[in-house]
Simulated assay, not measured.
Amino acid sequence: MKVETVSIDKIKPYENNPRNNDDAVANSIKEFGWQQPIVVDNGRVIIAGHTRYKAAKKLGYKEVPIVVADNLTKEQVNAYRLADNKSGELATWDDDELQEWLIVLLVVKA
Rank of each mutant, 00 (worst) to 15 (best):
K2V: 04
K2P: 04
K2G: 04
V3I: 13
V3H: 03
E4L: 11
K10R: 10
K10Y: 07
K10N: 06
P13D: 10
Y14L: 05
N20H: 15
N20V: 15
N21L: 15
N21I: 15
D22V: 07
D22I: 06
D23E: 15
V25H: 07
A26D: 11
N27M: 14
I29T: 12
K30P: 10
K30R: 15
E31Q: 15
F32C: 10
G33K: 04
G33T: 04
G33W: 02
Q36T: 11
P37N: 04
I38V: 04
V39G: 00
V39F: 03
V39S: 03
N42F: 00
I46M: 05
A48V: 09
A48K: 04
R52P: 03
Y53T: 05
Y53M: 07
K57A: 07
L59W: 00
G60P: 07
P65H: 11
P65K: 11
V67G: 03
V67I: 14
A69Q: 05
A69N: 05
N71Y: 14
N71P: 02
T73H: 07
K74S: 02
E75V: 01
V77G: 00
N78Y: 14
A83V: 08
D84Y: 07
N85Q: 12
E89Y: 06
E89D: 11
A91C: 06
A91R: 09
A91W: 03
D96F: 07
E97D: 06
L98R: 10
L98S: 06
I103C: 05
V104Q: 13
L106E: 12
L106K: 12
V108L: 13
A110M: 08
